[in-house]
Design a protein around this nucleic acid. Structure first.
Lengths: 161, 161
DNA sequence: TCATAATGGTTATAAAATATAACTATAACT
DNA sequence: AGTTATAGTTATATTTTATAACCATTATGA
């Protein structure tokens, strides 16, 4: 549905020749369009594991930070706490992580990944890296590293406003 | 609310030291986080004109492409036609654009910007460019142009999947 | 110590963005 | 002329994101 003009569209019309020069000179617009396409492909990849982006991001941080609290996870992912609850609920319901009560603070949970959770983490990560390599080229290439560095700098400078 | 640890957080905890190395090695994640920050700032800028991102993007394309049809606009913005209707409705209600009936095809509208619409376009564009320069540096700098080119390439390669 | 404030997690809810099916009126095709 | 396709719309559902308010627990400080 991206391109491909049918016979009917061959009249005088704007198909495929709408001028979006003004928008395309704006970095933010290009970021949005590029990310949308990347995301669309990633969603496909993660669907094979019955994961969504945010769910998988949470799993990654829990695996990498055993004992993490929900509030720290929310801050690290830049998600509001209430919105994280259902995500943690799902990961727990699927047996990928566990909420362990703390003796030191009985309000909080220590989030820990289970073995199946760590396995899913690994398997999905392989697929995600393949997806990224396909789109961005080798993730260790100087070009790719430079892109990541630029994006992080943009993030910092935008947050500084 | 970004950083700033209160006295209470000084215990042994994960505040500000959650390891997100795995996520940060993924380009897509950095794109998402960077774009979120850019968008947050842009939203502030556009609020002064009572515009949202999509509404303003639509206005830009209508100003730059007088006589545009809604379906072509939808395709150019990668938005579903039904979702564009309310956006066009708003622009029309505010007197920024007009839906002009076509004699050649009485199903379609030719979208044209009004004088106030063109003026808002100009004023908002100045503010948006200032916002972008603040974050990305001069928009004509080779670095910025290179970033845009990279993003467009990413978009193409991701769409090719 | 006790009253107050703050924190971690949750619930409920709303707003916004996004997607799909189905409808109308017109137009194009054979 | 009859079928098919298109432009725009309506209705609707889903997802994402944000906000307020609550409960239980912990920290603060008079």
């Amino acid at each position: 549905m991206v391109t491909g003009k049918k016979k009917t569209e061959m009249r005088e019309d704007f198909s495929g020749k709408v001028s979006d020069e003004t928008l395309r000179k704006l970095v933010g617009y290009n970021m949005k369009r590029a990310f949308n396409e990347v995301q669309a492909d990633l969603v496909q990849v993660l669907q094979q594991f019955d994961l969504r982006m945010m769910t998988y991001s949470a799993l990654i941080l829990i695996v990498d930070n055993p004992g993490l609290r929900q509030s720290h996870l929310a801050e690290a992912l830049a998600v509001e706490r209430p919105n994280l609850v259902i995500i943690i609920d799902e990961l727990e319901r699927r047996g990928l992580i566990a909420r362990e009560r703390l003796i030191s603070d009985r309000r909080a949970y220590a989030l820990v990944a289970t073995l199946p959770g760590r396995q899913l983490y690994e398997n999905a990560l392989r697929a995600v890296k393949a997806h990224e390599t396909k789109i961005f080229g080798d993730l260790d290439d100087p070009e790719t590293l430079k892109l990541i560095e630029t994006l992080r700098q943009v993030e910092r400078r935008a947050r500084a406003r």
